[in-house]
Protein backbone atom coordinates (compact mmCIF):
# COMPACT_ATOMS: atom_id res chain seq x y z
CA UNK A 1 0.00 0.00 0.00
CA UNK A 2 1.29 3.39 -0.71
CA UNK A 3 1.73 5.84 2.03
CA UNK A 4 1.79 9.40 0.87
CA UNK A 5 4.16 10.45 3.50
CA UNK A 6 5.63 13.88 2.98
CA UNK A 7 8.79 13.01 4.85
CA UNK A 8 9.55 10.09 2.66
CA UNK A 9 9.40 12.36 -0.31
CA UNK A 10 12.17 14.40 1.07
CA UNK A 11 14.36 11.39 1.01
CA UNK A 12 13.36 10.19 -2.40
CA UNK A 13 16.34 8.11 -3.26
CA UNK A 14 16.51 6.04 -0.22
CA UNK A 15 13.93 3.40 -0.74
CA UNK A 16 14.90 2.38 -4.20
CA UNK A 17 18.60 2.63 -3.91
CA UNK A 18 18.99 0.04 -1.40
CA UNK A 19 17.41 -2.64 -3.45
CA UNK A 20 19.40 -1.71 -6.48
CA UNK A 21 22.63 -1.78 -4.58
CA UNK A 22 21.90 -4.95 -2.75
CA UNK A 23 23.16 -8.09 -4.44
CA UNK A 24 20.24 -9.99 -2.97
CA UNK A 25 17.49 -7.77 -4.14
CA UNK A 26 16.48 -9.64 -7.26
CA UNK A 27 15.95 -13.06 -5.81
CA UNK A 28 13.98 -11.78 -2.88
CA UNK A 29 11.16 -14.20 -3.57
CA UNK A 30 13.39 -17.22 -3.39
CA UNK A 31 15.36 -16.15 -0.39
CA UNK A 32 12.28 -15.13 1.51
CA UNK A 33 10.98 -18.62 1.88
CA UNK A 34 11.23 -20.47 5.14
CA UNK A 35 14.32 -22.45 5.81
CA UNK A 36 13.61 -26.04 4.87
CA UNK A 37 16.04 -27.94 7.07
CA UNK A 38 14.41 -27.15 10.39
CA UNK A 39 11.40 -29.19 11.31
CA UNK A 40 8.30 -27.38 12.48
CA UNK A 41 8.51 -29.11 15.83
CA UNK A 42 11.99 -27.84 16.48
CA UNK A 43 10.96 -24.35 15.55
CA UNK A 44 7.85 -24.44 17.73
CA UNK A 45 9.74 -25.78 20.69
CA UNK A 46 12.22 -22.97 20.40
CA UNK A 47 9.35 -20.53 20.22
CA UNK A 48 7.40 -21.79 23.22
CA UNK A 49 10.56 -21.46 25.22
CA UNK A 50 10.97 -17.79 24.47
CA UNK A 51 7.52 -16.37 24.02
CA UNK A 52 4.95 -16.86 26.74
CA UNK A 53 2.65 -14.44 28.42
CA UNK A 54 1.62 -15.69 31.82
CA UNK A 55 -1.90 -15.73 33.14
CA UNK A 56 -3.69 -15.40 29.84
CA UNK A 57 -5.97 -18.10 28.52
CA UNK A 58 -6.30 -17.39 24.81
CA UNK A 59 -9.18 -19.79 24.32
CA UNK A 60 -11.26 -18.26 27.07
CA UNK A 61 -10.40 -14.77 25.87
CA UNK A 62 -11.70 -15.62 22.42
CA UNK A 63 -14.81 -17.24 23.76
CA UNK A 64 -15.59 -14.15 25.82
CA UNK A 65 -15.84 -12.10 22.64
CA UNK A 66 -19.05 -13.92 21.75
CA UNK A 67 -21.04 -11.71 24.10
CA UNK A 68 -19.63 -8.44 22.85
CA UNK A 69 -22.11 -6.37 20.84
CA UNK A 70 -21.21 -5.63 17.23
CA UNK A 71 -21.00 -1.90 17.49
CA UNK A 72 -18.28 0.76 17.46
CA UNK A 73 -16.67 1.26 20.83
CA UNK A 74 -18.12 -1.91 22.28
CA UNK A 75 -16.82 -2.71 25.78
CA UNK A 76 -14.78 -5.92 26.08
CA UNK A 77 -14.78 -8.33 28.99
CA UNK A 78 -11.03 -8.10 29.58
CA UNK A 79 -9.57 -5.11 27.79
CA UNK A 80 -5.79 -4.68 27.76
CA UNK A 81 -5.87 -1.32 25.99
CA UNK A 82 -8.55 1.35 26.25
CA UNK A 83 -8.59 4.66 24.40
CA UNK A 84 -11.04 7.45 25.10
CA UNK A 85 -11.81 10.55 23.08
CA UNK A 86 -8.55 10.40 21.15
CA UNK A 87 -8.34 13.18 18.58
CA UNK A 88 -5.49 14.16 16.27
CA UNK A 89 -5.70 16.96 13.77
CA UNK A 90 -3.20 17.95 11.09
CA UNK A 91 -4.07 21.48 10.18
CA UNK A 92 -7.65 21.32 9.00
CA UNK A 93 -7.66 17.55 8.64
CA UNK A 94 -8.90 15.42 11.49
CA UNK A 95 -6.84 12.28 11.02
CA UNK A 96 -8.14 10.46 14.08
CA UNK A 97 -11.26 11.02 16.14
CA UNK A 98 -11.99 7.93 18.20
CA UNK A 99 -14.64 8.19 20.89
CA UNK A 100 -13.92 4.96 22.63
CA UNK A 101 -12.19 1.74 21.77
CA UNK A 102 -11.16 -1.32 23.74
CA UNK A 103 -8.82 -4.11 22.72
CA UNK A 104 -9.50 -7.52 24.19
CA UNK A 105 -6.57 -9.26 25.87
CA UNK A 106 -5.28 -12.50 24.40
CA UNK A 107 -6.94 -12.27 21.00
CA UNK A 108 -6.01 -11.11 17.53
CA UNK A 109 -7.72 -7.85 16.63
CA UNK A 110 -7.55 -6.57 13.07
CA UNK A 111 -7.73 -2.87 12.32
CA UNK A 112 -8.91 -2.22 8.80
CA UNK A 113 -9.99 0.75 6.77
CA UNK A 114 -9.38 2.51 3.47
CA UNK A 115 -6.14 4.33 2.78
CA UNK A 116 -5.86 7.44 4.87
CA UNK A 117 -8.43 6.23 7.37
CA UNK A 118 -6.07 7.08 10.19
CA UNK A 119 -4.90 3.60 11.19
CA UNK A 120 -1.22 4.40 11.32
CA UNK A 121 -1.93 7.66 13.08
CA UNK A 122 -3.98 5.79 15.68
CA UNK A 123 -1.06 3.39 16.15
CA UNK A 124 1.21 6.36 16.71
CA UNK A 125 -1.18 7.80 19.24
CA UNK A 126 -1.63 4.54 21.12
CA UNK A 127 2.12 4.07 21.41
CA UNK A 128 2.83 7.74 22.14
CA UNK A 129 4.93 8.19 19.02
CA UNK A 130 2.58 11.06 18.38
CA UNK A 131 0.70 13.19 20.88
CA UNK A 132 -3.07 13.50 20.52
CA UNK A 133 -4.82 16.84 20.70
CA UNK A 134 -7.16 15.30 23.22
CA UNK A 135 -7.93 11.95 24.81
CA UNK A 136 -6.61 9.36 27.21
CA UNK A 137 -5.10 5.92 26.76
CA UNK A 138 -5.00 3.21 29.36
CA UNK A 139 -2.84 0.12 29.01
CA UNK A 140 -3.10 -2.72 31.49
CA UNK A 141 -5.13 -0.47 33.80
CA UNK A 142 -2.36 2.11 33.80
CA UNK A 143 -2.80 5.51 32.24
CA UNK A 144 -0.07 5.93 29.65
CA UNK A 145 -0.88 9.46 28.50
CA UNK A 146 2.35 10.88 29.80
CA UNK A 147 4.60 7.92 29.18
CA UNK A 148 7.36 8.66 26.69
CA UNK A 149 7.33 6.58 23.51
CA UNK A 150 10.49 4.74 24.46
CA UNK A 151 9.00 3.70 27.78
CA UNK A 152 5.96 2.13 26.16
CA UNK A 153 7.99 -0.97 25.38
CA UNK A 154 8.81 -1.29 29.05
CA UNK A 155 5.09 -1.30 29.83
CA UNK A 156 4.69 -4.36 27.64
CA UNK A 157 3.51 -2.93 24.35
CA UNK A 158 5.64 -2.94 21.24
CA UNK A 159 4.84 -1.82 17.73
CA UNK A 160 6.23 -2.31 14.25
CA UNK A 161 6.13 0.17 11.42
CA UNK A 162 4.32 0.27 8.12
CA UNK A 163 7.58 1.15 6.41
CA UNK A 164 9.81 -1.57 7.72
CA UNK A 165 12.61 -0.35 9.89
CA UNK A 166 15.34 -2.93 9.68
CA UNK A 167 18.61 -1.49 10.94
CA UNK A 168 20.54 -1.94 7.73
CA UNK A 169 24.12 -1.64 8.85
CA UNK A 170 23.69 -3.98 11.77
CA UNK A 171 23.65 -7.72 11.48
CA UNK A 172 20.49 -9.73 11.99
CA UNK A 173 21.63 -10.96 15.37
CA UNK A 174 22.54 -7.44 16.46
CA UNK A 175 19.09 -6.30 15.40
CA UNK A 176 17.63 -9.02 17.57
CA UNK A 177 19.78 -8.34 20.58
CA UNK A 178 18.82 -4.71 20.46
CA UNK A 179 15.27 -5.70 21.23
CA UNK A 180 16.13 -7.02 24.66
CA UNK A 181 15.21 -4.67 27.45
CA UNK A 182 17.10 -4.29 30.69
CA UNK A 183 20.56 -5.00 29.34
CA UNK A 184 22.82 -3.39 31.92
CA UNK A 185 25.56 -2.80 29.40
CA UNK A 186 23.38 -0.23 27.72
CA UNK A 187 24.46 2.30 30.29
CA UNK A 188 27.40 4.44 29.31
CA UNK A 189 29.29 3.85 32.51
CA UNK A 190 28.93 0.07 32.60
CA UNK A 191 29.66 -0.27 28.91
CA UNK A 192 33.39 0.01 29.48
CA UNK A 193 33.41 -2.83 32.00
CA UNK A 194 32.47 -5.90 29.98
CA UNK A 195 32.38 -8.17 33.01
CA UNK A 196 29.30 -6.30 34.18
CA UNK A 197 27.20 -7.28 31.19
CA UNK A 198 28.82 -10.31 29.51
CA UNK A 199 26.68 -12.89 31.20
CA UNK A 200 23.45 -11.10 30.49
CA UNK A 201 24.52 -10.62 26.90
CA UNK A 202 24.94 -14.34 26.53
CA UNK A 203 21.44 -15.05 27.75
CA UNK A 204 20.04 -12.47 25.42
CA UNK A 205 21.95 -13.96 22.52
CA UNK A 206 20.57 -17.41 23.26
CA UNK A 207 17.04 -16.11 23.33
CA UNK A 208 17.64 -14.25 20.09
CA UNK A 209 19.00 -17.40 18.46
CA UNK A 210 15.96 -19.39 19.59
CA UNK A 211 13.64 -16.84 18.08
CA UNK A 212 15.62 -16.79 14.86
CA UNK A 213 15.27 -20.55 14.66
CA UNK A 214 11.56 -20.24 15.13
CA UNK A 215 11.33 -17.68 12.36
CA UNK A 216 13.69 -19.85 10.31
CA UNK A 217 16.11 -17.02 9.89
CA UNK A 218 19.03 -18.46 11.83
CA UNK A 219 21.05 -19.02 8.69
CA UNK A 220 21.14 -15.28 8.11
CA UNK A 221 22.19 -14.50 11.62
CA UNK A 222 25.40 -12.69 10.74
CA UNK A 223 24.25 -11.02 7.57
CA UNK A 224 23.70 -7.26 7.49
CA UNK A 225 19.99 -6.58 7.83
CA UNK A 226 20.27 -4.30 4.83
CA UNK A 227 20.85 -7.31 2.62
CA UNK A 228 17.52 -8.93 3.53
CA UNK A 229 14.53 -8.89 1.22
CA UNK A 230 11.45 -6.91 2.07
CA UNK A 231 9.61 -9.92 3.45
CA UNK A 232 12.56 -11.04 5.49
CA UNK A 233 12.76 -7.60 6.99
CA UNK A 234 9.13 -7.80 8.05
CA UNK A 235 9.92 -11.11 9.73
CA UNK A 236 12.99 -9.69 11.38
CA UNK A 237 11.06 -6.72 12.64
CA UNK A 238 8.44 -8.97 14.17
CA UNK A 239 11.03 -11.25 15.75
CA UNK A 240 12.91 -8.25 17.08
CA UNK A 241 9.75 -6.88 18.65
CA UNK A 242 9.29 -10.17 20.47
CA UNK A 243 12.70 -9.76 22.05
CA UNK A 244 11.09 -7.05 24.15
CA UNK A 245 8.94 -9.76 25.78
CA UNK A 246 5.77 -7.74 25.32
CA UNK A 247 2.22 -8.56 26.34
CA UNK A 248 0.85 -6.90 23.28
CA UNK A 249 2.26 -6.44 19.80
CA UNK A 250 0.97 -3.92 17.30
CA UNK A 251 1.81 -4.74 13.71
CA UNK A 252 1.30 -2.11 11.01
CA UNK A 253 0.66 -4.02 7.78
CA UNK A 254 2.96 -6.95 8.53
CA UNK A 255 1.94 -8.72 5.37
CA UNK A 256 2.25 -5.87 2.90
CA UNK A 257 4.56 -6.70 0.05
CA UNK A 258 5.25 -10.22 1.24
CA UNK A 259 4.96 -13.10 -1.20
CA UNK A 260 2.16 -15.65 -0.67
CA UNK A 261 4.37 -18.46 0.66
CA UNK A 262 5.89 -16.27 3.29
CA UNK A 263 2.53 -14.72 4.09
CA UNK A 264 1.25 -18.09 5.17
CA UNK A 265 4.12 -18.59 7.56
CA UNK A 266 3.74 -15.04 8.84
CA UNK A 267 0.09 -15.74 9.56
CA UNK A 268 1.16 -18.87 11.36
CA UNK A 269 3.52 -16.84 13.47
CA UNK A 270 0.82 -14.39 14.39
CA UNK A 271 -1.63 -17.05 15.52
CA UNK A 272 1.27 -18.75 17.27
CA UNK A 273 1.79 -15.58 19.28
CA UNK A 274 -1.83 -15.50 20.30
CA UNK A 275 -1.70 -19.10 21.37
CA UNK A 276 1.10 -18.19 23.73
CA UNK A 277 -1.19 -15.62 25.33
CA UNK A 278 -0.05 -12.54 23.48
CA UNK A 279 -2.44 -9.81 22.41
CA UNK A 280 -2.10 -8.83 18.77
CA UNK A 281 -3.42 -5.73 17.05
CA UNK A 282 -2.64 -5.54 13.37
CA UNK A 283 -3.45 -3.41 10.37
CA UNK A 284 -4.17 -5.21 7.14
CA UNK A 285 -5.77 -4.45 3.81
CA UNK A 286 -6.21 -7.99 2.54
CA UNK A 287 -9.59 -9.18 3.76
CA UNK A 288 -8.76 -12.84 3.20
CA UNK A 289 -6.06 -12.69 5.78
CA UNK A 290 -8.17 -10.72 8.16
CA UNK A 291 -10.88 -13.37 7.85
CA UNK A 292 -8.36 -16.11 8.29
CA UNK A 293 -6.66 -15.17 11.51
CA UNK A 294 -8.41 -12.39 13.34
CA UNK A 295 -10.81 -12.90 16.21
CA UNK A 296 -12.21 -9.42 16.13
CA UNK A 297 -12.22 -6.65 13.56
CA UNK A 298 -12.31 -2.89 14.03
CA UNK A 299 -13.08 -0.75 11.00
CA UNK A 300 -11.91 2.84 10.65
CA UNK A 301 -12.88 5.42 8.09
CA UNK A 302 -12.01 9.08 8.02
CA UNK A 303 -10.51 8.92 11.45
CA UNK A 304 -13.49 7.33 13.15
CA UNK A 305 -14.34 3.82 14.15
CA UNK A 306 -17.38 2.94 12.13
CA UNK A 307 -17.84 -0.73 12.89
CA UNK A 308 -16.68 -3.57 15.11
CA UNK A 309 -17.45 -7.23 15.17
CA UNK A 310 -16.19 -10.70 14.39
CA UNK A 311 -14.64 -11.04 10.91
CA UNK A 312 -17.65 -12.67 9.38
CA UNK A 313 -19.95 -9.81 10.34
CA UNK A 314 -17.93 -7.11 8.67
CA UNK A 315 -18.61 -7.85 5.02
CA UNK A 316 -22.35 -7.39 5.54
CA UNK A 317 -22.04 -4.15 7.45
CA UNK A 318 -23.48 -1.41 5.26
CA UNK A 319 -21.49 1.33 6.97
CA UNK A 320 -18.31 -0.47 6.07
CA UNK A 321 -19.26 -1.03 2.49
CA UNK A 322 -20.23 2.62 2.17
CA UNK A 323 -17.00 3.71 3.69
CA UNK A 324 -14.93 1.74 1.25
CA UNK A 325 -16.94 2.53 -1.84
CA UNK A 326 -17.77 6.07 -0.86
CA UNK A 327 -14.39 7.28 0.17
CA UNK A 328 -12.28 5.51 -2.38
CA UNK A 329 -11.29 7.52 -5.40
CA UNK A 330 -11.04 4.53 -7.71
CA UNK A 331 -14.64 3.64 -8.36
CA UNK A 332 -14.08 0.04 -9.35
CA UNK A 333 -13.32 -1.64 -6.08
CA UNK A 334 -13.42 -5.39 -5.80
CA UNK A 335 -14.95 -6.11 -2.46
CA UNK A 336 -13.56 -9.61 -2.32
CA UNK A 337 -10.08 -8.37 -2.78
CA UNK A 338 -9.82 -5.28 -0.78
CA UNK A 339 -12.59 -5.90 1.67
Amino acid sequence: MTDNSPREDDYPAMNETFDRASPFADDAGVKAGPRPDISDEEADAAFAEVVTVDGVDPVAARAALADVPWEPGAPKPDPILVADGVVRRFGGLTAVDVDHVEIQRGVITALIGPNGAGKTTLFNLLTNFDTPDAGTRVFNDKNIDNVAAHNIAGHGMVRTFQLTKALSKMTVIENMKLGATGQKGESLFRSIFPFMWRKQEKEIEERADDLLIHFKMDHMRDQFAGTLSGGQRKLLEMARALMVEPEMVMLDEPMAGVNPALTQSLLGHVTGLRDQGMTVLFVEHDMDMVQEISDWVIVMAEGQIIAEGPPASIGENTAVVDAYLGSHHDSALDLDQEL
Partner: peptide
Protein backbone atom coordinates in the same frame (compact mmCIF):
# COMPACT_ATOMS: atom_id res chain seq x y z
CA UNK B 1 8.60 27.02 12.40
CA UNK B 2 5.85 29.55 12.20
CA UNK B 3 4.30 28.31 8.97
CA UNK B 4 5.73 24.81 9.00
CA UNK B 5 3.80 21.63 9.27
CA UNK B 6 4.23 18.74 11.64
CA UNK B 7 5.99 15.71 10.26
CA UNK B 8 4.72 12.21 10.21
CA UNK B 9 5.95 9.06 11.80
CA UNK B 10 5.54 5.45 10.86
Amino acid sequence: GLLGRAERIG
